[in-house]
Amino acid sequence: MIQVEHEMHQRRRGRNLGVGLLLVGLIGIVFGLSVVKVTLGHNVEKFDHVRRPMLEQTE
């Protein structure tokens, strides 16, 4: 009888699921960090080869 699913595939499924969850976790961390960085109120505007009035110091 031809076995459609090898035992190896079952083991690899568990590993792939784990890697998937870790990647989702990483995405969550990067997203959460981005939200925090933006809401903390730091100046997110940087030099972009054109005049940026926001970056110029007021006298």
Partner: peptide, 10 residues
């Protein structure tokens, strides 16, 4: 070739 000792996450 099938590696019977495929590494696991742990």
């Amino acid at each position: 070739t099938v590696r019977t000792d495929d590494p696991e996450l742990k």
